[in-house]
Nucleic acid binder design. Structure first.
Length: 299
DNA sequence: AGTCTCATTATTCTCTGTCT
DNA sequence: AGACAGAGAATAATGAGACT
């Protein structure tokens, strides 16, 4: 599964995945990645296949069925479709017309069929977003996941700008959030989880005029990937090395943020790098004190 | 199936600064 | 001065995973 690529029309990227949990996002994009260029065919996924694709952790089948079901439930609630510029013409449709879960079988499976009007989203694409499904699955925060998708759309230019309104809509941020809440609940996980994946990631706020200094938009910049860069994994060690490099060489992160980011990619408990650092620091202090003591003894 | 734990997400409040 | 914005802390609610 390691080298599975997700690829779909950019249009699909602009639809906010309302209330999707990270697990549900993994399932959704796993399905999307395998439905591409299948037209109106019904595609069958075995449970094992889906679990493998989506890095599914919990093991019980009943829970898995619940999760697939709730994923479909949320897909149904999505507002697919277009809104004309003046907002008067709107069309809505669902993405899948058939979604059949057969769990009571030796080899349980799901049958899925794309809705005819959704075909352009996944077939004979003229423009697209693509990224590694594995990288996407490994992100924990749903905000990071969404931001990852959005930024990948600009992978070869390395620059993206979103107005505050757009940003809030695309990431489905609660309306009650103030700027400080966005910093804490949205940008914090994004910085922690995406810095390893986007080299030199830089986030800047754009301020407007008027009372206070209102934030009106956010800029994202990173080192562009080359056009034909493959997203294929070069092995676990190489991936890790690259991530560590990206964290270490990001001028935006504070020392503490770097520690947390490193803990995350190594799967360590948050705070490991920090306490490591402090024990090291203490050891050094002890050494110094010891040396001081020795000096005093010989005075 | 029930309980516990931890991380994430949501809400609310205080303090400080900036603009008209 | 008064209205608005932002950072940051405190706290509550939710949800997933682990354990038994």
């Amino acid at each position: 599964m390691t080298n599975e690529l997700v690829k779909y029309h950019t249009e699909l990227n602009t639809i906010p995945l309302r209330k999707f949990s990270p697990v549900e996002m993994n399932l959704f994009f796993s399905i999307v990645s395998r439905m591409r260029d299948k037209g109106e065919q019904t595609v069958r996924f075995s449970f094992d296949q889906l679990k493998d694709l989506s890095d599914y952790k919990a093991t019980a089948n009943s829970r898995f069925i619940d999760d697939i079901y709730s994923t479909y439930d949320k897909i149904l609630s999505l507002r697919f479709g277009k809104r004309s510029a003046n907002g008067l013409d709107r069309s809505m449709f669902v993405m899948f017309t058939q979604f059949e879960i057969v769990g009571d079988s030796d080899d349980p499976y799901v049958d899925i069929k794309l809705f005819e009007k959704a075909i352009p989203l996944l077939n004979s694409l003229d423009e697209w977003v693509r990224y590694s499904l594995k990288q996407f699955n490994e992100l924990q925060s749903s905000y990071s996941k969404t931001m990852f998708r959005l930024l990948k759309q600009f992978r070869t230019t390395g620059y993206a700008y979103f107005s505050k309104d757009e940003f809030i809509e695309l990431l489905d941020i609660p309306k009650s959030y103030r700027e400080s809440d966005i910093n804490k609940n949205v940008f914090k996980p994004i910085k922690e989880e995406l810095t390893p994946l986007f080299r030199g990631l830089l986030i800047r706020k754009k301020y407007g005029k008027g009372r206070g200094t209102p934030v009106i938009g956010y800029q994202f910049a990173f080192k562009p990937e080359s056009k034909n860069a493959d997203d294929f994994s070069k092995g676990e060690q190489e991936n890790l090395r690259k991530k560590m490099f990206n964290i270490e060489h990001n001028g935006e992160l504070s020392q503490q943020e770097k520690w947390i980011a490193k803990d995350k990619i190594l799967g360590l408990k948050i705070g490991t790098h920090e306490s490591e650092f402090h024990t090291q620091e203490n050891k050094n202090k002890e050494k110094e004190m010891l040396i001081d003591d020795l000096k005093n003894m010989f005075k």
